[in-house]
Write a protein that binds this DNA or RNA. Structure first.
Length: 574
DNA sequence: GACGTAGG
DNA sequence: GCGGCGTT
DNA sequence: AACGCCGCATCCTACGTC
């Protein structure tokens, strides 16, 4: 077992103890030990060999013995014993809105509820309201929440590309009335996380209660979860939860910061505040001795008061940004306006909707200096991929257009399939005639890790290749990432000077934040492209930029921030 | 007012 | 359950 | 050195129910 597996077991143990209603501090002790093991630099097996398990903070006599047992046998007795006393599907019950470990345990011990179906039945038969402590309202809520949980297509998290447009739509509607002056999207959407659990909004209003009221009766509202003085919570069309929070204007910055999170970032900020003698909350700082409240109308002021440089929302994950901000070492992150061209664009020659000319003019209108028309290659039959002959015509057409369109350079490219054996879909002679060669895996996506890795490595070794598009192939709700060894692929990309793509399509966002960070740390250059198939999809660039910012990426890590002249020089384009 | 749940 | 503290 | 005692709580807040 490695560190994370040991930590996971300890976390599970804590959860089970919580369900059992064990001593809170005991639960916390397990969680603390697990957290510290997770963050450990060294391999726990090596610590064990040196008999230094006890030096891990939070690991005492009892947990040390359990870790040893785990390292030897893969589990420990106390874990197995307690597991048999707890129903298997308890997690799906705790996942129901409004039910936590205490209620789950109560329902189990009094009614024998051990899975979602049982919960539904208990609610329908009105058995829940008879338990002391539970009432009619609680039962009604459980019934609705359990049904929602069981509903078809309930996936829990939503791709950012689904949630953000809904958040924008709701924000606009809320601003229609006169009660609400300003709405801001907060939470994980504001941090540009690739999937989000809910939509978090904050607003400014002189009459918070009325504003919340308006929110809870808005169009497409399906269910009201909460309606208070400063906060409302609804289920919106599409089964997505939306929370709205309102505070007075003077604390708007504090609220925005709080509701943007992440939770881990907030906890750390609050610890810093404590060390300076303050309590931090969504209302601002409170002097620990005098209880004086200090609200902040902007996030900038609040960070500054804590002795920190301003931290962009995308970095607020407790991935080292707070330490960097203390030393004033937050980098200047890439922005949409840094992008000078799009290197992955489709036209109606393959599966795009618009002509090359239309795409070029749209890009020019965005202020781009160049686009790479990268239509599919012959093997992508469904995508109307270009035969060798059609590719030659494609090249000629681009030549012709470049002569008559001013103000933007159309690069002649391809999105060439990497065939299952690692060879490319076009001959080297043909690839040589192109300005930019983008390669990607499309078919045979089920290959095992070794084969897939070698397939991509072979492609990257080809001297004509410039960019690997959507490297992991994932598509939200449709396809998991390929089985592949990303380390090896990155090693190869670095060795051969190849560029990895951050594909901005909101169903892909591939590379994701973590892999993009890994690439940046290794010094691999990136390209942030839209993979657009229509004029509107150029707008997806914001998703790719958001992902890049989460990876701490700066303008100079990305090749399509270069001016036309410089990118031509870099890629050897005449 | 206590408790449980949920939110970042 | 951990770990710092005072006590023996 | 061994033992028992006791505070701890990754932070701070809102809402609904009983």
């Amino acid at each position: 077992m490695d560190n994370s597996e040991v930590a996971k077991r300890l976390f599970e143990m804590a959860e089970m103890l919580e369900f059992k209603g064990e001593n809170v501090f005991k639960i916390k002790a397990y969680q603390k030990a697990a957290r510290n093991i997770e963050e450990l630099e060294e391999d726990i097996n090596i610590l064990r060999q040196r008999d230094e398990l006890g030096t891990i903070s939070g690991v005492g006599e009892a947990i040390e013995a359990k870790i040893k047992e785990m390292l030897d046998t893969g589990t420990f007795k106390a874990f197995e014993e307690i597991r048999h006393t707890i129903p298997q599907d308890i997690e799906e019950i705790i996942a129901v809105q409004g039910i936590g470990p205490k209620t789950a345990h109560l329902l189990y011990s009094k009614l024998g509820v051990k899975d979602l179906q049982g919960l539904l039945k208990a609610a329908e038969e009105h058995r829940i309201r008879r338990i002391p402590g539970m009432g009619v309202k609680t039962e009604e809520h459980i019934l609705i929440a359990a049904k929602r949980q069981l509903a078809e297509g309930n996936i829990g998290r939503f791709p950012l590309g689904v949630a953000l447009p809904i958040a924008e739509e709701i924000s606009k509607k809320l601003l229609d009335g006169i009660l609400i002056r300003e709405v801001r999207i907060a939470g994980s959407i504001r941090r540009w996380k690739d999937t989000v659990g809910d939509i978090d909004l904050i607003a400014r209003s002189d009459e918070p209660e009325k504003a919340i009221e308006v929110f809870t009766v808005m169009d497409n509202m399906q269910e009201v979860l909460e309606k208070g003085n400063t906060k409302g919570s609804i289920i919106y069309k599409g089964n997505i939860q939306v929370d709205l929070r309102i505070v007075k204007d003077d604390a708007f910055g504090s609220l925005l910061q709080h509701f943007t999170g992440s939770k881990e970032h907030n906890v750390k900020l609050r610890q810093i505040a404590l060390s300076k003698g303050f309590h931090l909350s969504e209302y601002g700082l409170k002097n620990a001795t005098t209880a004086e409240q200090i609200p902040f109308s902007t996030e900038h002021e609040q960070y500054e008061r804590l002795g920190l440089q301003f931290i962009p929302p995308e970095l607020r994950e407790d991935w080292g940004e707070i330490e960097a901000a203390m030393e004033k070492k937050i980098p200047r992150l890439i922005e949409v306006s840094d992008i000078k061209g799009d290197l992955h664009v489709h036209s109606n020659w393959s599966d795009g909707h618009n002509s090359i000319e239309e795409m070029a003019l749209a890009a020019k209108a965005l202020g781009y200096q160049y686009i790479n028309i990268s239509d599919h290659s012959a093997s992508s039959k469904i995508a109307n991929g270009l035969s060798e002959k059609r590719l030659l015509d494609h090249i000629k057409e681009i030549e012709r257009l470049n002569e008559c369109i001013e103000g933007i350079r159309i690069l002649s490219g391809t999105e060439c399939d990497i065939l299952p054996d690692g060879t490319l879909d076009y001959s080297d002679e043909l690839l040589e005639q192109l300005d930019i060669v983008v390669v990607a895996v499309h078919g045979s996506v089920e290959q095992d890790s070794k084969t897939m890795t070698q397939r991509i490595v072979s492609a990257l070794e080809n001297e004509h290749v410039h960019i690997l598009a959507h490297p992991t192939g994932r598509k939200f709700g449709k396809r998991l990432p390929f089985a592949m060894n990303m380390e090896k692929i990155m090693d190869t990309a670095l060795e051969y000077g190849k560029v990895l793509e951050i594909n901005s399509s909101p169903q892909r966002l591939d590379l994701n934040d973590k892999f993009a960070m890994m690439a940046r740390e290794r010094g691999i250059k990136l390209a942030i492209n839209t993979d657009t198939h229509s004029l509107e999809q150029f707008g997806n660039i914001r998703y790719g930029i958001g992902t890049a910012r989460r990876a701490w990426i700066a303008s100079n890590d990305v090749i399509n921030t270069l001016h036309l002249k410089d990118i031509c020089k870099l890629l050897g384009i005449s």
